[in-house]
Design a protein around this nucleic acid. Sequence first.
DNA 1: ATCCCGATTTTGATAAAGTCCAAATCTGGA
DNA 2: TCCAGATTTGGACTTTATCAAAATCGGGAT
Lengths: 154, 154
Amino acid sequence: MRDPESTLRQHHLPVTAQRLAVLWAVSHHPHATADEITVGARALLGTISRQSVYNVLNVLTDKGIIRRIQPADSPARYEDRVGDNHHHLVCRACGQTEDVCCAVGGAPCLEAHDDHGFKIDEAEVIYWGLCPSCQRAGVSAAPARPLPPHHHHD
Amino acid sequence: MRDPESTLRQHHLPVTAQRLAVLWAVSHHPHATADEITVGARALLGTISRQSVYNVLNVLTDKGIIRRIQPADSPARYEDRVGDNHHHLVCRACGQTEDVCCAVGGAPCLEAHDDHGFKIDEAEVIYWGLCPSCQRAGVSAAPARPLPPHHHHD
DNA sequence: ATCCCGATTTTGATAAAGTCCAAATCTGGA
DNA sequence: TCCAGATTTGGACTTTATCAAAATCGGGAT
């Protein structure tokens, strides 16, 4: 995200301090949750309501300025990197999320063998596993409900 | 699911009316939500608590007797079909879900190009699109939040 | 066939994530 | 500078699911 302000103008969105702060937080904390983004935005603004963070994230997502990912057993996460169709690698224990490049070939990347008449617009891929840190910590199996994170990635 | 009762015994689970009813409902309503399964189970039992449905679904999922899928913007759904690694096709508008066979080759089916040191145990694929019925109904874009279903598949 | 312990079910409270609504405030064009 | 419409805010509310404690049930031992 080179210039958040002109990005907003390009999309005909009024420029507000809240939008700039959320956009900054998303850029600097890839795969952060709404709560984490709120913390990041408050570090810049001093104050922003929880509802505004959701409002901004929804507008930016609708405009395609950011991308929302919603892995199972996790609140939604947001990222800056849009326009390609990369996928994600998610730790079952702590939720750490990494980008991985497209699984197979070019942009459409995957095709269903039988589309059942659906008009498919996206193939979403999530690789599930254990991150190096959770492997070392001896977490052996996927918990039914996620463990409290034992490390953070800010 | 040939014989729900012996399936339970094979997994050393006491046989209860609630478990049989939930298992039956899952078998007969593939990709149903907990609420839909509750309705199905009550059709057999007359009464079952919401908590028991969750209890049973959790036990069955933990034992690998059923599989839980958790698409974005949808409550969890459950299915009978386990042991293969098929994927899913989900309608953005109404949530209708279909099985699709594995995207690429055999069982592992997909490999991340860079595993970032993760120990990967599953590649989950969801194809997103519009089902034939929603296409006909003129739903044009993916709603931020799902529309109320305009058809059901029981 | 009956008893009993531990597992299961039930009821009700609670949690997490996010949305809805109306009032107050701000943005940006005129 | 002013104003209409968009944005932000605070609070209530919804949905999905879990937690906890009390009541009940299943099934092996007697």
